[in-house]
Design a protein around this nucleic acid. Structure first.
Lengths: 336, 336
DNA sequence: CTGTTAGCGCATTCAG
DNA sequence: CTGAATGCGCTAACAG
């Protein structure tokens, strides 16, 4: 760039014949400036194409109007949504978002917090994978506020916004509520520390429905082909299930596809529900019912909280827990 | 935060009993400091937990060590990869990435450039959707360098890194090279301004293969179900094609699934190739061959160029054009 | 209502 | 090799 000598507040003041404090007042919309002067100065600003140097301003005000979003890897399918939600709120408040991938590397993750004050950010939204104890220590040392995404104990010195981990129960509830009585499980036993599979067993139990191990299909990866295999497996049972609870949407998509290819009708013969509500749920025929974990929402709320705290550091830390949301589509309820 | 009074370079200088210029030299690894003093000061820095205030430094040096990545919407499936590639290089060079979504809103997109100098960034990687003429004008007015992602004319005052738009030809070439002679097309006629369909017709022509309109299946959306429909359509032809060129991976995935469900073997009976190389290509059985548009690579190169230019504004503008890369997987060539 | 003054925290001359 | 002084561009008292 031709390093066009950037015009400063002094230039404006000089050519307008006023003090730079007056210019400062004007560009900050401060009250107590005669309309005439304001007009005159504004004209000069326009002419010279002056825009305030935000770095200098930040040095003075300590406000950088930037927050960091630190996640492990933007390529993880949830994070674009998260980043998007976060950016929406940031933009509304005239803040920018700095993206930092820590790649699940604890030392790097902690470095992010440590360096934050030296970076151009006023706060951090952090999706951590570190041990809470360590995390807590580091956050205390930080000199910018941190909002954590996830569920934490009360003693964590940060605002947190997490998701209630009952997606599995919501999915099962849905199937039961639409009258299904022979519900199968497709996925693995370990997803989300086993919570989703546990939800399967416990939902059956709490509704006094019998558990039949023949209705559980576990595959290796939680991907489409596992779903396809599951469909074939269920099809060959003596008694075909009337519903399938899939551990995630990929599996659900596979199950739906597999069942249809085998000549069954979805949802009439078998209802299928997945979890995560990935965009793909809308791209299949029939569209797949799912439970949304509200990622964009989490991003939005996290930034909202962070901005509030930046504004007022003394507030009590908040614990926000979102409820997953059931998204009913064609794979469980016939629609037109 | 308890606004712990941040320790400054003065504090360090005072408690170490040296001038702050000496401290400055040390933290910047400048030569000409007696090892003893260096050691002593470093110890104090450690004790006090001093870290330089980057805002103040930026005010002085004019270097902010941040670049902006301006795209239309991070939720677009390509951008996470792009952002990832960009962030890799940025991080290596100790730069941060500021994420800006302009939502395909030209005025906002241009505002990004205008404001850039006021923001905490030293340059911008921009994926624009504005008219080149307008874009060119704005870039000239900007006071930070811009690197554009895309293909532009020589008069565009910015470095550019684009992709050669021959993905279609590469896909077709592959099918022809593995000996297929009855190649079908599945997708629509308009994707990428019709380039992909054009590649289908022209590849046939240049290889003296006959064009048969019965082998063209066009659906509405470029999604899985279109692929499934296409598979059914091809299956019902008098003579089934021995290969399918799908306009994108979603369609390809659908075609593969559909054909297999109809009892055909992929790739033995029908080879299928898609375009875009989305992560899902690896999640199906068989895995789907595709042509990668090297998104992460583009991000990497764009940032590399930008950093070079930030370093030396006088360099001639560069035009970089990447060649799409064919990724051969199981849907076209039997593997073990 | 407006001007003067004094830093924000650092890098960088220029003298010693 | 080190210290003292200056200013980056802006905001915020404090006076007028």
């Amino acid at each position: 760039m031709e390093t066009r000598p950037k015009v400063t507040i002094d230039d404006v003041a000089r050519t307008a014949g006023v003090a730079k404090s007056t210019v400062s007042r004007i560009i900050n919309n401060a009250p107590g400036v005669k309309p005439v002067t304001r007009l005159k100065v504004n004209r000069v600003i326009e002419e010279l194409g002056f825009t305030p140097n935000i770095v200098a301003r930040s040095l003075k005000t300590k406000l950088r109007r930037q927050i960091a979003l630190a996640i492990d890897d933007i390529r993880n399918p949830y994070y674009p949504e998260l980043a998007w939600g976060a950016e929406q709120v940031a933009k509304q408040n005239n803040f920018r978002l700095v993206l930092i991938n820590h790649y699940g590397n604890p030392s790097e993750e902690l470095a992010v917090i440590k360096e934050a004050s030296d970076m151009h950010v006023d706060g951090i939204v952090l999706l951590s994978i570190s041990h809470p104890k360590t995390l807590s220590k580091i956050i205390k040392k930080a000199n910018v506020p941190v909002t954590l995404i996830g569920n934490y104990e009360d003693d964590m010195p940060a605002d947190t916004v997490g998701l209630r981990e009952n997606e599995g129960y919501m999915a099962m509830d849905h199937l039961i509520r639409i009258g299904r009585r022979r519900i199968a499980y497709a996925g693995n036993m370990t997803v989300h520390r086993g919570a989703r599979y546990a939800a399967y067993e416990q939902s059956l139990a709490s509704h006094f429905m019998e558990f039949d191990s023949a209705l559980v299909y576990t595959g290796e990866r939680l991907a489409i082909d596992t779903g396809l295999e599951a469909a074939r497996y269920f099809y060959n049972l003596n008694e075909i299930p009337d519903a399938v609870f899939a551990a995630n949407d990929l599996v659900a998509i596979g199950v739906v596809q597999g069942l249809i290819d085998l000549g069954l009708r979805v949802p009439e013969d078998v209802a299928v529900v997945g979890i995560d509500n990935i965009p793909w749920c809308n791209l299949t025929r029939p569209k797949v019912s799912s439970v949304s974990n509200l990622v964009a929402e989490m991003g939005r709320i996290a930034v909202e909280r962070l901005l509030l705290r930046i504004d007022d550091e003394a507030r009590a830390f908040e614990r926000i827990t979102l409820e997953p949301r059931l998204i009913v589509r064609e794979s469980t309820v016939k629609q037109r």
